[in-house]
Amino acid sequence: MDKKAFLADMAEILEVTNAELSDALELNNDNWHSFAVVATIAAINEHFGITVPADTLIKCSNIGELINLIEANIK
């Protein structure tokens, strides 16, 4: 699981710095739009080799939930 590279991509997708990207970082209407969700699905697929459904991913409300979702899908 290339979590570090994935988080670097997430910082780019959400337009924040790596330092700002914590588990608590909120995913809201400002940064969690359809393009960001699709880009995140592509990044998850590239780094972890899994596909998380858009309808599930869009419900994540912060980065911590997103990571938990990925880990649950990997297991």
């Binding site: 359809s34 969700v37 699709v38 699905i41 697929n45 596909t51 459904p53 858009a54 309808d55 869009i58």
Partner: peptide
């Protein structure tokens, strides 16, 4: 299939 797997049902 890979493309639409990234999309919501509505999209």
């Amino acid at each position: 299939d890979k493309i639409i797997a990234r999309m919501t049902a509505e999209s």
